[in-house]
Every structure is written in C-alpha cells, then in structure tokens.
C-alpha cells in the first residue's frame, strides 16, 4: 500500500511538473512561416494531453478581424492531431415536448425578449448552474450538434447550449493551421483531440505530451478586408 501511495504521489508530482512545462509550449513550437504577419493573441494556450484525450479552448473572435490558429504537439503524440472549430451558441427552448422543440425554436429564436435571460438555469449567466460546485456547462455536448443542459420541470423558457461545427481539419488534409476572417463576433471552441486509445494506465507518461494552440490576430480592415 505504501509503495502504491508513493508511486501515485511521484506520478502526480511528475504530471503536475510536466503540465507546468507545457505552459509556454505554443510560443516556442507553433511558429509558422506565413508571410502574413499577425499579432500574438493572449488567448493562446498550451496543455499536457494524452492519447485518446480531448481538450477545449474557448476563444472570442471579433468581427472584422483576421485570425490564424496554429496547433502543434510533441512527436510522441503522433502526427495526426485532430482539431475542430465550433461556434458556441445558446438557444431558447421550451422544455415541454421534444417533438415541438424544433418548431418552438423557429418561432422563438428571433424574439428580442428582455426576459429571456431572466431564467437562471443556464450557462454563464446562471447562478444556479454553479450553486453546488463548478460544473462546466459546455462539457456535455453531443458530437452531432447539441444537447440540452438545463434542468427540466419548469414551464419557464429554458436555454440550451449548442455548438455548431465550422471547421474540421480531418476534411482539410489534417492541416495544423487555419486562417480566417471573422464575420460577426463569435464565441468559438477549438477542440483538440489526440487519436489513440484512451488512458487505461495511470503511469503512461510516455503517451502524454504538450499540445499548443497559438492564436494570432490582425485587423482585417488594415489588410484590406
């Protein structure tokens, strides 16, 4: 038992240190040789990930700006790093009959209601969502499109969080970099997934490595957009 605790302790310490070592990974390793020079964006991040693991980076892309997102990873994670970009949306639903949901959304979604945020059972604008302990309101997405994240049992309007796929590098020759212009300000999720079997052993450090997401921006106005 003592040996197990000691090993677990050592592992925890090493993983913690490894994670810290990753913090600046994107700065040193995600550089690109594009002629289009952009400014470093403080939303860039790095993380320690293992095979079979996913990570989400929530970003804000402002209207009229050009962005470049470059993903890089340590060699031991393999050459195929998958990254997807979603737009995060919150839509009004009525939590009654599931079959009426689509019609209701069509009717309600354009409502410019002052009251639609009065209900407090959803995401960032909700106190109740965090009453017991912090829970990530975005972690329960289904892969397809959306999943309701609100409590049932009330006739008040409810909201659900959805994410819509905008880009998938598996449809773009596994490109590790994407340049785009934001038309309208967007709440984006960059989802990184490392192919491979999910960790079954807690001591599989060799299957872990640093992943960096370098975000850069430039004014599209200046670039002639």
């Amino acid at each position: 038992m003592k040996k197990f605790l000691l090993l677990a302790f050592l592992f925890g310490t090493i993983v913690s240190l490894e994670a810290q070592q990753c913090n600046y990974y994107h700065r040193k390793n995600c550089e690109n040789d594009s002629e289009y020079k952009m400014k470093y964006d403080s939303q860039s991040r790095s993380a320690l990930l293992g095979k079979g693991q996913k990570s989400e980076f929530h970003l804000v892309a402002y209207n009229g700006m050009d962005y470049r997102i470059t993903v890089c990873a340590e060699e031991n994670l393999g050459e195929e790093i998958h990254f997807k970009i979603y737009e995060k949306q919150r839509v009004l639903i009525k939590p009654e009959k599931a079959e009426d949901l689509a019609v209701y959304e069509e009717e309600q979604i354009d409502l410019e209601s002052q009251d639609e945020y009065a209900d407090d059972t959803y995401d960032q604008y909700s106190d109740n969502a965090y009453n017991d302990s912090y829970s990530d309101p975005y972690s329960d997405y289904s892969e397809s499109y959306s999943e309701e994240t609100v409590a049932q049992g009330s006739n008040e309007p409810k909201f659900k969080l959805v994410k819509e796929l905008l880009y998938d590098n598996t449809s773009d020759s596994l490109s590790m970099s994407l340049e785009f212009t934001a038309q309208g300000t967007m709440s984006l999720i960059v989802e990184i997934s490392i192919p491979g079997e999910a960790q079954t052993s807690k001591l599989a450090l060799r299957n872990m490595g640093c992943v960096g997401v370098l975000v850069e921006h430039a004014s599209a106005l200046k670039a002639g957009f």
Binding site: L5, A8, F9, F11, G12, T13, V15, S16, A19, D41, S42, Q43, S44, R45, A47, L48, L49, G50, Q53, K54, S55, E56, F57, H58, L59, V60, Y62, D136, Y138, S139, A198, Q199, K202
Partner: peptide, 20 residues
Amino acid sequence: AKAIEPADEFKQQVFYPIPS
C-alpha cells in the same frame, strides 16, 4: 490530492482565456 487522484490529469481540459 494529486497523489490520490492522478487520473484527473486525463480528464478533458477546458480553458477560458479572454482577449487582452
């Protein structure tokens, strides 16, 4: 705590950076 539950490191990580 890290020693007891190192598996937390393998859970999905979520980051909320904001523009500077």
